[in-house]
């Protein structure tokens, strides 16, 4: 039904690594790669997504690398999952996604069930921050 992808796990691992060095010098992709054993190319793709979604910042130069843009306490796990994987939704016809709703939405028998599951999953991911993962 609902599956946590490798991409999602790797994205979280990379963020935990950056979280542990928050407030310190930038961390290079090489260091993350060494510590968390994420395939290099995969990691680079993930870092691009995390940067585009405003979670990390890249700093150029010899001592460059990646840093978090926000305090780990302010980054929700849901933000990270959304950044690497897109919205967490079991169905496309959620409240946030009105244009994807079909015309039978009012009579739909099963939508309430999926919406309930969707909300539970999002709640769990939204209640916890990156900081919770670092302890």
């Amino acid at each position: 039904m609902l599956k946590i992808s490798t991409r999602c796990r790797y994205g979280l691992l990379a963020m935990v690594e950056l979280g542990q060095c928050y407030g310190q010098a930038p961390v290079s992709a090489q260091e993350i790669f060494k510590k968390q054993h994420i395939p290099k190319l995969y990691l680079q793709q993930l870092l691009v997504k995390l940067r585009r979604n405003g979670l990390v910042e890249s700093i150029r130069g010899a001592k460059g690398g990646f840093i978090l843009r926000k305090d780990p306490k302010q980054i929700k796990i849901l933000d990270i999952v959304k950044a690497v994987e897109g919205p967490v939704q079991l169905i496309s016809c959620t409240k946030q996604n009105k244009d994807k709703c079909c015309s039978k939405i009012k009579e739909c028998l099963t939508r309430p069930v999926w919406v309930e599951l969707h909300e539970v999953v999002n709640k769990v991911l939204n209640e916890r921050t990156l900081y919770d993962l670092m302890r």
């Binding site: 039904m1 609902l2 946590i4 796990r9 979280l12 935990v16 796990i77 599951l117 539970v120 999953v121 709640k123 769990v124 991911l125 916890r128 993962l133 670092m134």
Partner: peptide
């Protein structure tokens, strides 16, 4: 694993 408790919580609630 720091993530496992979260996945477990999702499983339990689902």
């Amino acid at each position: 694993c720091v993530f496992r408790p979260i996945w477990d919580k999702i499983r339990l609630m689902t």
